[in-house]
Structures are given as structure tokens and as C-alpha cells.
């Protein structure tokens, strides 16, 4: 059992770890590969990174909640969910080199939580941390033609248009981003 009902909640939680680590750019990559029956979620940040000792502790909820409160329960939950669904979980990190968190799932596994409302999740990332750049990449490899579909949202592109005067947190900009996400992601349907 985990507290999160869908995978996008895990993604938001892991994203916040990257923000706390001082990242200025976080990459969120979701790959739905129906041909290999695999769902892979990868988050990569350019934050402070962790040393080997911290990495060892990070997947242990009892150690992390008591000694490193900043990390919390998010990672153990995510790991448990992946491993419960015939998948794998890995974190790669080095001090000063950022952190990459990857979870994979058997796509068709009966216990695999749905991806959930990714459009809202990504909106929350931007609302919450408008100072952090987000590169979101969603890739689907389907069983029938057209085999591949792709959606990319890069806040650096958005920022380049807006300049310094208008922040990403402007209500109308957020509305635009949400519509772009919803339209783009509705085009990615497993087939």
C-alpha cells in the first residue's frame, strides 16, 4: 500500500526533492512503451546531488524520516510501487552533479497505478516553483500505427518569449500552459 493513488503524485513528490536540492533545471521524462510492456519515469535535476551515504539511506523510510527529514517518505513509496509492479527503481547522484531518479513498471501489471492527471501535476510544478526550469518529455510507443507519439513542454522556450517582465506565474500564462498541456497530452493515448 502506498499513500499515492497515481504515479503523477509520485512524480510531483520527486520533483520537489529536486527543487529542494537547489536545481535550476529539472527534466521529467515519461515513456510509455507498449511494445516492450514498460512504463519508465525519469526525473533528472541539476541540484546539489547526494553522497554515497545519503544515497544508501534514501530508500529506507525509517532511517530517512528520523535523521534526514528533508528527504521524507516520497522515495521509499516510489521504489515500493515500482518493485511491486514488476519494475525497477534506481537513483544516481553525486555531490555537485545533480540527481537522476528512475522508476520503471510493467505497463500491464495489474497493480500498476494509473499515470493520473499529468497536466495538473506539471501545472503544479510550474505554479509552485516558477523559478525552476522544467523540460517535460512524454513519449509513447504504441502497438498499432502510428507507432510513436511525443509531447514536449520546455519552460525555457516559454520564458524566452515572455522575457523578464512577465513571470510564468502570471495567471493568464498559467492558463495557457495548462491548455497546452491538456491539448498535447490528450493526443497521447495508448494504442
Amino acid at each position: 500500500m502506498t499513500v499515492f493513488r497515481d504515479l503523477s503524485q509520485h512524480i510531483l513528490d520527486i520533483y520537489e526533492n529536486g527543487v529542494k536540492a537547489g536545481a535550476t533545471l529539472i527534466t521529467v521524462d515519461i515513456e510509455e512503451d507498449l511494445q516492450q510492456d514498460l512504463l519508465t519515469i525519469t526525473l533528472c535535476d541539476n541540484g546539489a546531488g547526494m553522497d554515497a551515504e545519503m544515497l544508501q539511506h534514501i530508500a529506507d523510510p525509517w532511517v530517512t524520516t528520523r535523521t534526514t527529514r528533508k528527504v521524507g517518505l516520497g522515495i521509499p513509496f516510489f521504489k515500493q510501487t515500482a518493485e511491486m509492479c514488476g519494475g525497477n527503481f534506481a537513483i544516481h547522484s553525486q555531490p555537485g552533479q545533480g540527481t537522476t531518479t528512475q522508476a520503471s513498471f510493467q505497463y500491464s501489471h495489474i497493480d500498476r497505478p494509473p499515470l493520473g492527471d499529468v497536466a495538473t501535476t506539471v501545472t503544479c510544478m510550474i505554479v509552485g516553483y516558477p523559478q525552476v526550469d522544467l523540460y517535460y518529455h512524454h513519449h509513447l510507443i504504441g502497438l498499432t500505427s502510428p507507432a510513436e507519439e511525443e509531447f514536449i513542454l520546455d519552460t525555457r522556450e516559454v520564458r524566452a518569449v515572455l522575457g523578464n517582465e512577465v513571470p510564468l506565474s502570471d495567471p493568464e500564462v498559467l492558463g495557457f500552459l495548462r491548455n497546452t498541456l491538456e491539448a498535447g497530452l490528450s493526443g497521447i493515448t495508448p494504442h
Binding site: Q9, T123, Y129, S169, P171, L174
Partner: peptide, 25 residues
């Protein structure tokens, strides 16, 4: 997250363009 979505939708619908939304831990 659903709370955030509802707040953003309400602000957009009512054109409350002078309201800033943010989040914390």
C-alpha cells in the same frame, strides 16, 4: 493537487488577474 487545480480554474474563470498563486511544502 486537485485543490490547486480548482483554485487556478476559479481564478481564471473569474478573471482574478491580480491574484498570485504559489505553493509551499
Amino acid at each position: 493537487r486537485e485543490t490547486m487545480k480548482a483554485i487556478l480554474a476559479e481564478i481564471e474563470q473569474r478573471q482574478l488577474k491580480d491574484v498570485v498563486v504559489t505553493q509551499t511544502g
